[in-house]
């Protein structure tokens, strides 16, 4: 029984962390049709922003929940203005340009920030479940992810800004025709996506640590989850990360972590064969 509880918690955690690392990318892809391959580096920089400011004496929660997302949002807007906006409507070119950007940022982080940052221990200690122990931080990650998804849902569905953003997503020319500043909506959306990536990087930093190359491990999973989910950002990410996270964690329990990783990839491959436009290419098309 205790084992069952632990297994369920672990699966929830796998789903949540997958959704967490993907949501920033998903918003940018769903809203703007842009695949940001430097997404992993946004997470990496979020982790650095958190750890550097925390080690410099900033309060733990402020460093994680404010400093990291705001820093990465600013970087995101700069990237959008300098690079992305020249490439709208050309998916492949944006993939390539942001891939270059990702190499650039890895190199920059390795040169400027280096490999030896003092780590941060996850707070909350551990919680006993019968004969097992579970880190309290695991619950925090699950909770934050749920809260983020809910906040995004409300933000897109019920606010004026969300309405404008959704309108721009559906038909940018029409939105522009009725007076929406499409340029600014795109820049803001990219900034929000970047902020979410920075936040995710900061939240995962106590568990995963920070390294200049850590983005590579994130971006592949995020990329696969977002594409598997399809063009509808929230529903797609939710559905795809539930499927991929659950399968990969369940397989990890039955065999080894590496088999779990492979299972995730295999499920993604088969999924895209059956639903060539991702899950939301067929289901939840009218979702968010």
């Amino acid at each position: 029984m205790d084992l069952a509880v632990v297994v369920v918690i672990q699966i929830l955690y796998a789903v949540a962390s997958l959704a967490l690392i993907s949501i920033g990318l998903a918003i940018i892809f769903g809203m703007m049709g842009v695949i940001n391959f430097a997404h992993g580096e946004f997470l990496m920089m979020g982790g650095y922003a958190f750890i550097l400011s925390y080690n410099a004496g900033v309060n733990f929660w402020i460093a994680m929940l404010v400093v990291a997302p705001v820093t990465i949002a600013v970087i995101g807007v700069v990237v959008e203005r300098l690079i992305i906006r020249h490439l709208y409507g050309r998916v492949i070119e944006t993939v390539l340009a942001t891939w270059g950007l990702s190499l650039f940022l890895i190199g920059l982080a390795a040169t400027v920030l280096g490999y030896h940052q003092k780590g941060v221990n996850p707070p909350f200690g551990t919680i006993r479940i019968g004969a097992y122990q579970e880190g309290g931080y695991t619950f925090f990650v699950i909770f934050v992810t749920l809260a983020l998804m809910a906040a995004l849902y409300v933000g897109f569905k019920y606010t004026r800004w969300g309405l404008i953003a959704r309108g721009t997503m559906q038909n940018a020319q029409m939105a522009s025709g009725i007076g929406v500043n499409v340029d600014r909506v795109y820049a803001t959306t990219f900034g929000i996506g970047a902020a979410l990536s920075g936040l995710a990087g900061a939240i995962l930093a106590p568990i995963a640590g920070v390294l200049p190359e850590i983005g590579v491990t994130y971006v592949v999973k995020a990329f696969i989850t977002v594409i598997g989910g399809g063009a509808v950002a929230l529903a797609g990410t939710g559905a795809a990360s539930s499927l991929f996270g659950a399968v990969s964690q369940a397989v990890t329990f039955l065999s080894r972590p590496v088999v779990g990783e492979v299972a995730l990839l295999v499920v993604a491959i088969v999924l895209l064969r059956l639903l060539p436009l991702g899950i939301t290419g067929r289901y939840f098309r009218r979702g968010l």
Binding site: I83, H86, L87, E93, L96, A97, W99, G100, L101, S102, L103, F104, L105, I106, G107, L108, A110, T111
Partner: peptide, 13 residues
């Protein structure tokens, strides 16, 4: 990485 990444971006743009 810095040099190759910068070249990559510059070429696409």
């Amino acid at each position: 990485n810095i040099v190759l990444g910068a070249i990559f971006v510059a070429i696409v743009l």
